[in-house]
């Protein structure tokens, strides 16, 4: 219970500081919109090409956005050494990770929901027909990005060349999430959408494995 209540308190703090500063969300939304618009100008895809390549472009944009969004996740705790204050206050350091990954998942999902109509218009791909299923895929994909990204953000925050280190570690490790999310999204953007259970199962497995690893070893990532 202490873990859940601490997580809820910390999640409240993450949301309050972000909605007060709007640093991450604004930057990420602008960045991801720019990428999607640039892709559409560069390729000028037809409807069929959009259905074929759109999901890949979309998830690549999400991946870049995630690496941008996840970077400051632990870095901003270093400004005033607030991470030490959190570690002194919580019984289970996993609460710190849980709150951060919940906030990151929420921010990513929000960015994706904002982006989806823009993608639909620019690439001429209707998304309303499979909107709830798309949200589920995006949630599972975002969770995968956040679990891995939050852990790596904790590691890279303590390293030299941290700005380079996170994308270098994150992008290869997230290749399975990118493939599964792209395939799952592609299944939902065809003329007759089908629920991609196989890929959703894969994403669930990825999320569970990394979440368990974070629960087991997260404490060591926060140590000096």
């Amino acid at each position: 219970m202490a873990l859940l209540s601490n997580t809820a308190v910390l999640l409240g703090k993450e949301l309050r500081t972000e909605f007060r500063s709007r640093e991450l969300l604004t930057t990420t939304v602008v960045f991801i919109l720019t990428i999607v618009v640039l892709f559409s100008f560069t390729f000028d895809p037809s409807v069929n090409e959009s259905r074929r390549f759109g999901p890949g472009l979309l998830w690549l944009a999400f991946l870049f956005a995630a690496s941008l969004m996840l970077q400051p996740c632990f870095l901003r705790e270093q400004t005033n050494d607030t991470l030490s204050a959190l570690r002194l206050s919580v019984n289970d350091p996993f609460a710190i990770f849980l709150a951060k990954l919940a906030a990151n998942t929420l921010f990513l999902l929000l960015t994706q929901v904002l982006l989806l109509p823009v993608f639909s218009i620019l690439y001429n791909v209707p998304v309303l027909g499979a909107f709830p299923q798309l949200i589920l895929v995006m949630f599972m994909g975002s969770l995968g990005l956040s679990v891995t990204g939050t852990a790596l953000s904790a590691i890279s925050a303590q390293a030299r060349m941290r700005e380079l280190l996170l994308p270098l570690l994150l992008l290869p490790l997230l290749t399975p999430v990118l493939i599964a999310s792209t395939e799952a999204t592609a299944s939902l953007l065809v003329l007759n959408p089908i629920m991609p259970w196989k890929w959703l199962g894969f994403l669930l497995g990825f999320d569970v494995v990394f979440l368990t690893a974070l629960w087991l070893f997260g404490e060591y990532l926060l140590e000096e």
Partner: peptide, 11 residues
């Protein structure tokens, strides 16, 4: 614990 860094959130 009190250090040179304030360990509180500016925001």
């Amino acid at each position: 614990f009190v250090a040179h860094a304030t360990m509180v959130y500016d925001e």
